[in-house]
Simulated scan of single mutants.
Amino acid sequence: MIGAGVQDVFDTTTAWFDSLPGPGRLVLAATGQVAGEQHLADVASGGVWFTLERDPLWAMREAIGLCGTPGVLGAALAHRREDHTLDAHTVALALTVSADLTRRRRDHAVTDKAAVCSPVRPSLVLTGCSAVPHLITVHTGSQLRDRVMWEVIDDATAEQVHGEPLPPAAARARLNTHLRELLDLRARTRAGYLPDSPLGGMIAAVCADGPLTITAVYREAATLLPLLDDTFDGAR
């Protein structure tokens, strides 16, 4: 489980590439002919490999394959905008999160595979893989903002980094409907004002040693899901 978490806060007020864990290369897998990639390629000291594919699953497969290559720090799946350019900020954040996950897992000898992240939830994933929503905090200079960063990970590696099998797909789908509430609970935990309720009490216990993470949520899914449903479903 220790290898699954991300750092507490990602600081976007500094150049993202300054925080990368040592020399190495990053993978940017994008669909279609994406303009503006040179901006990202120039900033990483080790460079960025670009994989341009028309099929998102091919791009995903290529990124995952390259993440087994020595020297690769991480990968991001890019989604082009209507003008066919990259949203450089979110792609850079995805690369930073993937590199952070990779470093932590390698430091704790959990896995040598580099992580593959996406700023948005992939519409499709490869057979034998899952999309895991990491809860992260971003420092924008004036405030802290919590958001989700998705990781595409094969199920065997996911079991390694989370310390146990992922919850069943149906349970994870239900948890995904509560991501907004989980982000709010993460922020409330940081600020020290969780609700005085069974859900608040459970979150306080889960977060006794740190921020609310998706690993902790998955570990307590059987108990946490009914509390989330009871607390929030009626308010929608």
Rank of each mutant, 00 (worst) to 15 (best):
I2E: 12
G3P: 01
A4V: 02
G5E: 14
V9I: 15
F10V: 06
D11T: 06
T13N: 04
T14A: 13
W16L: 15
F17G: 02
D18R: 14
L20N: 05
L20F: 15
P21N: 07
G22S: 08
G24K: 10
R25I: 05
L26C: 02
V27R: 01
L28A: 09
A30V: 15
T31W: 08
T31D: 04
Q33K: 12
V34H: 00
A35L: 13
A35V: 13
G36M: 07
H39Y: 13
L40D: 01
D42W: 12
S45F: 11
S45L: 13
G47S: 05
V48S: 01
F50R: 09
F50D: 00
E53N: 10
D55F: 06
D55V: 10
P56W: 00
L57Q: 11
L57Y: 03
A59G: 05
E62P: 00
A63S: 07
G65Q: 09
L66R: 12
L66C: 05
C67E: 07
G68F: 04
G71T: 09
L73W: 06
G74Q: 00
A78K: 01
A78L: 11
H79L: 12
R81M: 13
R81W: 03
E82W: 12
T85F: 12
T85I: 02
H89I: 13
H89Q: 15
T90F: 09
A94R: 01
A94T: 10
S98C: 05
R103V: 06
R105T: 04
R105V: 08
R105M: 13
H108C: 12
A109L: 14
V110Y: 08
D112F: 02
D112A: 15
S118T: 10
V120K: 03
V120E: 14
V120A: 13
P122Y: 11
V125P: 07
L126A: 11
T127V: 15
S130I: 08
V132Q: 07
I136K: 04
I136D: 08
V138A: 03
V138P: 09
T140I: 10
S142D: 14
Q143D: 15
E151K: 01
V152K: 02
V152R: 00
V152G: 03
I153R: 06
D154H: 09
D155P: 01
T157Q: 12
T157N: 12
T157D: 15
E159I: 04
H162M: 13
E164R: 15
P165C: 08
L166I: 03
P167K: 01
A169S: 12
R172F: 01
R172W: 02
R174D: 14
L175S: 06
N176F: 08
T177F: 04
E181K: 01
L182K: 03
L183R: 11
L185P: 00
A187S: 14
R190N: 03
L199M: 02
G200W: 00
G200S: 05
A204H: 06
G210N: 02
P211S: 05
P211L: 06
P211M: 10
P211F: 03
L212W: 02
I214H: 01
T215G: 14
T215M: 04
Y218W: 06
R219V: 06
R219K: 09
R219E: 12
A221M: 06
A222H: 09
T223C: 02
T223H: 10
L224K: 06
D229P: 06
D230Y: 05
T231Q: 09
F232M: 06
A235V: 14
A235R: 14
